[in-house]
Amino acid sequence: NQASVVANQLIPINTALALVMMRSEVVTPVGIPAEDIPRLVSMQVNRAVPLGTTLMPDMVKGYA
Rank of each mutant, 00 (worst) to 15 (best):
S24D: 10
V41D: 03
V27S: 04
R39W: 08
E35T: 15
N46I: 12
A34L: 03
V5S: 03
G62L: 09
V30L: 14
Q2Y: 11
L55V: 10
V30P: 14
T28V: 10
A3Q: 11
M56H: 08
A48T: 12
Q9M: 14
V60M: 04
K61Q: 15
G62V: 04
L40A: 00
P33F: 07
V27D: 03
V30C: 05
D58M: 08
V20W: 15
S24K: 12
R47W: 06
T15G: 05
G52I: 03
I37F: 03
S4G: 04
P33L: 09
I32H: 02
I37Q: 04
V41I: 11
Y63K: 03
V60E: 01
A34E: 08
M22K: 00
I32W: 02
V6T: 05
L17N: 00
E35Q: 15
R47L: 08
P50E: 09
L19H: 09
L10W: 14
Q2I: 15
V60H: 00
K61F: 10
L55K: 00
Q44L: 12
V5E: 00
V26P: 07
T53F: 10
M21T: 03
Q2K: 10
L19S: 13
N8V: 09
A16S: 08
S24T: 15
T15S: 08
M56S: 07
P29H: 05
T53A: 10
I13R: 13
N8M: 08
M56I: 06
L19Y: 10
L40Y: 02
P12T: 09
M43S: 06
L55D: 00
M56F: 10
Q44I: 15
E25G: 11
A64W: 11
E25R: 12
V20C: 06
D36Y: 13
V49P: 03
G31C: 03
N8D: 11
A48Y: 12
L51H: 11
S24P: 15
N46M: 11
I11Q: 00
L51V: 15
V27P: 00
P57I: 06
N8T: 12
V26H: 11
M22R: 00
V26D: 09
L40T: 02
V41T: 06
P12W: 04
P50T: 12
S24M: 10
L40K: 00
V41H: 04
A34T: 07
I11A: 00
S4Q: 01
D36L: 13
P12G: 07
P50V: 07
Q9D: 08
N14C: 06
Q2L: 10
M59N: 05
R39Y: 12
I37S: 04
N46S: 10
V26T: 08
G52P: 02
N8L: 07
